[in-house]
Structure formats: C-alpha cells, structure tokens
C-alpha cells in the first residue's frame, strides 16, 4: 500500500474508532507536572494527537512493566503456580521512531531461542502507530546518529508524519492495512507537494548528522582501548539512582520474586538492572561486578559492544532519556563521541 493522507480533523475520528476496537489505548498525555507520558486514554481521554519532545518513560513500560504478576499462587502448600495470561488488545498511538526501533530490538531479544511468553503475548496483541519527529526532542537526542530517527524505517503498523494540514500515513504491516481498510473514508492519496513538504522537514532535521560507526566503536570497546580514567570518572558520578534503566526503551533486565500474604499470593517479575550492586551478588556475598564503574561499563558495553556482536546493531537508539535524567551528568552520547572520535 502506498503512502496515504489523513486530514487533521479526521484523526480524532480515527482515534475514537480505534478505541472501540481495543482494551487499552496507550497514547501520549500531559500529566500533572506537564511532562508527557504514555497512558491508557481509552476511557479517560486527554490523549495528545501531536506533541513536542518525547515521553519521559518509554512505552516499554506497558510490555515489560515495572512489576508484573506472572503466576498466581493459590496455596503455598500445593507447590503449584497458575499462569496469569494478559490477553488485552492494546493500541499504542504516537510512539516515536526511536522507541519503535527499540521495540524491534526487544522483539528479537524476547522472542529468540527461549521465547518469553509474557512479553510475546502482550507484543502480539499490540498495534503500534508511530509518529515521526519534526524536530529533535531534546538537545541531547542523537537518534539520527544512531540510525533510529527521525522517521521509523520499519517496526510500525502505521506511521504518521505531520505536515501543515494533516498527516502522511505509511503502512508497515497487515495490521496497519486492516486499519486503513476499515476506515477507508478517512484516508486519501497525498498530493505531491505534501510529500515534498515532509521531505524538506526531514532533510533539515538530518542536516549535519553523522552516523556513528558502530562497528568501530564496538571494536574499540572489545579491544579494551578505552582509557581507564573514562570509566573511573563515570563510576564517580553514578549515584545508583537507576533512572537510566527505568527510562531506557531497550533495558530488559528483571528479577523474579514471590509476594504472599497468608497462604496465597503471586509470583511477580520486576525491572532490575546493572546499576544495583545486588544485581550480580551471589551466595557468600561475592560479586563479579563490585564497583559503580563496573556497573555502568556493563550498561554501556551491553548496548554498544555486545549487542553489536549479537544483532549487528547497537541497542542504544539515542533517545537521550538516560542523559536527561542522570543526576551525575553521565552521558552515553558524550561517551560515544569521545570514543568514536
């Protein structure tokens, strides 16, 4: 299916119709402190059709929630666990291209070899409508450099690109074409000058951007060519707030624990990660990663070195959430720029 066009006034109609066909409509929304977050607006409303910047927390939080009940424990004594399936149909609206790219990476991670059923269930029942970027979301963002923006190349069901009078619509999957087929009257063929307008914006955005040489960067890390003082400085600045792993769209580490009261309860999984020293601590108290600098190094190397080895691309999409949140001003971007120089 070729590119389509939808007028500004028709988007709300489309959204209302989409809401009818899903259990949760996850869309950007302004919360009390005026930050943009993703929230279920199916009943509550208040979704932003278009918005500046990106959400504080990545939409990952709906597929790999901060805490999630995996199993029900009906009785501690019987030794049994009962799965808690999540069959909710979710539509994600307004997801930024960097987060779409992150989803592609998370999909290959969670669905390879041993399939992670809780993640897969949620992913397969989800539809993703991307909203491409017309300007950089923050001064620190480096999605263009990481080949993850300002427009998604794949991984979306529909992608909207804002132009003056409405949105250009790209269809990325069968799920996407179904939405178009079911709402035929809302879509039209774009005019050539609309496409030109979008192209101009894109050109301006990508101007001066230099793609990062992933392979070279990974190679340098692999050969341990980074000055030890770089890691020392990073270690000094980390206060273990864990903001980075909480906000990052590609962080996937978790723990599993039981929570019971009386004889029944749940087994849950919750997000966990490398900044915490307890993350790798073993029986007897020894840990292979004792220092702050080891933890952040692990974070950086996982995304920029080992995942390049495994998937051919880094698993940092340049959204800059970790940079903007870090109280110690640790910047993965500066790190990349310094190392790849």
């Amino acid at each position: 299916m070729g590119r389509l066009f939808i007028a500004k006034e028709d988007i709300q109609t489309l959204i209302e119709r989409l809401k009818e066909g899903c259990d949760e409509f996850i869309a950007p929304k302004k919360e009390h402190l005026s930050d943009v977050i993703f929230a279920d607006t199916k009943e509550a409303g208040g979704e932003l059709i278009d918005y500046e910047g990106n959400s504080v927390i990545s939409p990952r939080a709906f597929l790999l929630p901060q805490t999630e009940a995996l199993f029900e424990i009906k009785s501690i004594k019987d030794g049994k666990f009962f799965p808690i399936p999540d069959k909710k149909k979710r539509i994600f609206y307004g997801v930024r291209p960097c987060d779409i790219k992150a989803l592609i990476l998370m999909r290959s991670f969670f669905l390879d070899e041993f399939v992670d059923i809780p993640y897969k269930q949620k992913l397969e029942n989800s539809t993703f409508i991307a909203l491409s970027c017309n300007r950089l979301c923050s001064e620190e963002a480096f999605c263009c450099e990481m080949d993850a923006g300002p427009v998604a190349k794949e991984g979306y069901d529909l992608q909207l690109t804002a132009i003056g009078k409405g949105y250009l619509v790209d269809v990325g999957s069968e799920k996407g074409s179904r939405i178009i087929r079911n709402n035929k009257k809302l879509f039209a063929k774009p005019e050539p000058r609309d496409e030109k307008e979008a192209l101009e914006t894109l050109k301006c955005l990508a101007k001066g951007c230099k793609r990062i040489d992933f392979k070279k960067l990974a190679g340098m890390m692999n050969e341990d060519k980074i000055k030890p003082s770089v890691w020392d400085d990073i270690g000094l600045r980390c206060v273990v707030c864990s903001g980075c792993i909480t906000l990052c769209p590609t962080c996937s580490c978790f723990s599993i624990a039981d929570r019971v009261s009386g004889d029944s309860g749940i087994r849950l999984r919750y997000c966990d990660g490398c900044p915490y020293s307890g993350f790798t601590r073993m029986a007897g108290g020894s840990t292979p990663f004792p220092l702050h600098k080891d933890h952040i190094r692990r974070f950086f190397e996982h995304k920029l070195n080992y995942d390049v080895g495994r998937y051919g691309i880094p698993s940092c999409v340049g959204c800059a959430r970790c940079i903007n949140t870090c109280p110690g001003n640790i910047s993965i971007r500066k790190f990349i720029e310094e190392v790849a120089k």
Partner: peptide
C-alpha cells in the same frame, strides 16, 4: 533468576 538468557543477571561480556 531466569535460566533462559532473559533476566540479565548472569550476563558477562555478551
């Protein structure tokens, strides 16, 4: 924590 290459706890150098 998971035993199946997902939770990240046992990860070393890729």
């Amino acid at each position: 924590k998971c035993g199946i290459g997902k939770c990240g706890h046992c990860y070393i150098k890729g």
